[in-house]
C-alpha cells in the first residue's frame, strides 16, 4: 500500500472516530439523562427534593451525606452477594448441561423436551406464585436464603437454555466426531470440548442472571422474612417503599440506588469482552 493511501486511510479513520464520538456524546446525553438525574438527586438535601413542587435538576445544596446510608446495608450486601454468586455460576452450568443433548443429538422425545423448555418461559409467573409458595413452605425453604438460589441447581429459565441451544448448534460436528473416534464419552465431549467453546455464552448468561437477581425484590419479598436474611433489593423496598418518613427521603433513596448500580456496572465492565467480543461460533477451524 502506498504511503499516500495509508495516510488517507488514517485520516478517514480519524474523521470517522470524531464523528462517532460526537454522535455518541449526543446520544448519551439523552440515554444517561435518567441516570444523571438519579445521581444529582443523591446529592440533594431535603429542601431541594421538595422545593414546593418544582422539580430541580441540579442540587442547590450539594451534600455527600446521603451516601452514609450504605453502611446500614452492608449486611444485606453480603446476602445479595451470596445469592448472586451462586446463581451466576450454577445457572449457566446447569443450563449448558441441559442444552447439550438437545443441541447435538437427535433422540426420541427431543422435540417434546425442547417445546417443554420453551413453554416454561411462557407462563406468567403471577400464577405460579401461590402454589410455589405452598411448595416452598412444605419443603422448609421458607425464610431461608436458600430459597433464592435453590432454583439455580435445576437449570435456568427456558429462554436461557434456548439461547445456549442456538449457540451450540452452530459449533461444527466434526469436533464431536473426532473426539468420539478418540474414545471420548458424551460427558467428556461436553466437558472438554463444548464448555470451553461456550465460555462466552456462559459468562453472558451468568452476568445476566447475576444482574437480574441483584435487582430482584419480588421473589425475596415473599420468602425472606427475618430482617437479617434480606437481600439488598428487598431491604431497599422494605425501607423505602413503606410510607412514613423514610419514603420521603428521596435523596437518600437515590443515593442507595446509585450504590446498588455500582456492583452490576463493575461486573458488566469486567466481563464485557467475554460477553460481546469473542463469542466465536464456527470459527474454530482446527
Amino acid at each position: 500500500m502506498s504511503a499516500k493511501k495509508m495516510s488517507s486511510m488514517r485520516r478517514n479513520y480519524t474523521v470517522e472516530c470524531v464523528v462517532k464520538y460526537i454522535v455518541f456524546a449526543l446520544l448519551l446525553v439523552v440515554m444517561l439523562f435518567p441516570y444523571a438525574f438519579m445521581l444529582n438527586k443523591s446529592f440533594m438535601n431535603i429542601v431541594d427534593i421538595n422545593n414546593s413542587g418544582k422539580i430541580l435538576f441540579f442540587p442547590k445544596h450539594f451534600t455527600f451525606a446521603n451516601y452514609r446510608i450504605f453502611i446500614d446495608y452492608i449486611g444485606y450486601f453480603v446476602n445479595s452477594f451470596i445469592v448472586v454468586v451462586i446463581n451466576g455460576l450454577l445457572v449457566p452450568l446447569t443450563s449448558c448441561l441441559v442444552a447439550f443433548p438437545l443441541a447435538r443429538y437427535r433422540f426420541k422425545g427431543d422435540n417434546f423436551m425442547f417445546t417443554l423448555i420453551l413453554a416454561t418461559s411462557m407462563i406468567p409467573s403471577t400464577v405460579l406464585q401461590v402454589p410455589q409458595y405452598l411448595l416452598f413452605v412444605k419443603l422448609k425453604l421458607y425464610d431461608t436464603l436458600a430459597s433464592q438460589f435453590i432454583g439455580a441447581f435445576f437449570g435456568g429459565s427456558g429462554m436461557q437454555i434456548f439461547l445456549i441451544i442456538q449457540f451450540m448448534r452452530a459449533i461444527p460436528k466434526e469436533l464431536d466426531e473426532a473426539a468420539t473416534i478418540d474414545g471420548a464419552n458424551k460427558f467428556m465431549i461436553f466437558w472438554r470440548i463444548m464448555m470451553p467453546l461456550c465460555m462466552n455464552v456462559f459468562i453472558y448468561i451468568g452476568v445476566g442472571v447475576a444482574i437480574a437477581k441483584w435487582n430482584d425484590f419480588q421473589g425475596p419479598l415473599i420468602y425472606l422474612k427475618t430482617d437479617a436474611k434480606r437481600t439488598m433489593a428487598v431491604a431497599f423496598y422494605f425501607h423505602f417503599g413503606a410510607s412514613g418518613d423514610i419514603s420521603l427521603m428521596t435523596h437518600v433513596k437515590m443515593a442507595m440506588a446509585v450504590c446498588m448500580t455500582i456492583f452490576p456496572a463493575i461486573l458488566f465492565f469486567i466481563c464485557q469482552k467475554q460477553m460481546i467480543g469473542g463469542v466465536k461460533l464456527g470459527a474454530v477451524k482446527e
Binding site: Y133, L134, K138, F238
Partner: peptide, 20 residues
C-alpha cells in the same frame, strides 16, 4: 410487614397453614 403486601400475606399464609 410492609403495608403493601400485608393483607395478601395474611391470606396466603392462612392458605398454606391450612394445607400444611
Amino acid at each position: 410487614e410492609v403495608l403493601d403486601g400485608y393483607y395478601n400475606g395474611l391470606t396466603n399464609n392462612t392458605g398454606v397453614a391450612i394445607q400444611t
